[in-house]
């Protein structure tokens, strides 16, 4: 099959198989997405970020931990493209290795929080009655909490570490997903196809897993993509307060916190990780906007 005919096959008005239809829909979405230049920019940045994380040891000019007290607080130069920090470590190398931590945090939170939210939201919406009441009350309680303070409290309770920071962020991030999933469930619950499946003898659990979850997923994905930037910023905030990644890990928020001491004379120490955070969270925002256009066309196209 040539490239042209594959494209035609994908865009066919009359798909022959279910698989063709599904692939066709994805391809259509990709075309829409590709047309959005900013979203593509976001995607490219993120692909580069992932590549950077994978090949960090190869890309980084130095070890992110190698100290050289004689060479501390050097401005950007040909030897150290982004300068050195207070312990004489190469900032560029630390940023490159730090991308792994950022991806780890974002990836893990983005996996945990929506899953908790999906579970609680759909169960609440599907079961209704007092189960709904109780679950939504719990959701409200967590929503009413000041988010960063709740995360702080969790980390303080569990002990500061990158794993606990991730856990704390996930525990504070799920309520909006639960709300969203519940709302979706309420609209789906009484749909004809659910009734049909029920008539065919499908159990409640089966209905939930096979029929309701898949329909909630796409709106959750959009939501997750839009939240990624927020997660990065929250994680950086925790790192900034010394409650995230522990030294000598090159977490970007912690690097800003380190550089804060030197900000008046050695601006690059805090500025470089700040720019890195900004770039990556912007990329996630761009990607999120693009994804929303594709996956959630009925939503706000901004």
């Amino acid at each position: 099959m040539s490239a042209v005919s594959r494209r035609e096959w994908l865009l066919s008005d009359a798909p022959q198989t279910r698989r063709q239809a599904r692939l066709g829909a994805i391809y259509q979405g990709w075309l829409t997405f590709r047309g959005n230049k900013l979203a593509m920019l976001g995607l490219i940045i993120l692909v580069l970020l992932i590549a950077m994380a994978i090949f960090a040891p190869l890309l980084a000019p130095q070890s992110p931990y190698a100290q050289n007290l004689a060479d501390r607080l050097q401005p950007p130069s040909s030897a150290h493209w982004l300068g050195t920090d207070a312990l004489g470590r190469d900032i560029l190398s630390r940023l490159i290795h730090g991308s792994r931590i950022t991806l780890f945090i974002v990836g893990t939170v983005a996996l945990i929080a929506p899953v908790i939210g999906l579970f609680i939201g759909t169960v609440a919406g599907f079961a209704g009655g007092w189960v709904d009441q109780v679950l939504m009350r719990i959701t409200d309680i967590f929503l009413a909490f000041p988010k960063l303070i709740l995360a702080l409290a969790f980390v303080a309770a569990l002990g500061p570490s990158i794993g606990n920071a991730v856990l704390a962020l996930a525990l504070t991030a799920w309520p909006p997903y639960a709300r969203l999933a519940r709302a979706e469930t309420l609209t789906i619950r009484n749909a004809d196809f659910i009734a049909a499946a029920r008539l065919q003898g499908a159990g409640r659990l089966r209905l939930l897993i096979r029929h309701i979850w898949p329909l909630c997923v796409s709106s959750l994905i959009v939501r997750v993509a839009l939240d990624m930037a927020g997660i990065i910023l929250s994680a950086a905030g925790l790192g900034f307060l010394g409650l995230g990644a522990q030294p000598p890990l090159p977490e970007w928020g912690a690097m800003i916190s380190d550089g804060r001491t030197y900000i008046l004379d050695y601006w690059w120490v805090a500025a470089m990780p700040g720019i890195a955070i900004f770039t990556v969270s912007m990329a996630f925002n761009l990607l999120g906007d693009g994804l929303r256009d594709v996956l959630d066309p009925k939503g706000d196209k901004s």
Binding site: T172, P176, R179, R223, R292, G299
Partner: peptide
Amino acid sequence: TDTTGAGGTPPGDDRPDPSARRA
């Protein structure tokens, strides 16, 4: 949730998805 605490996390109901309007 907070907009500003984490440095710009959009609040839970920020982008007007249908559920927010219903809410």
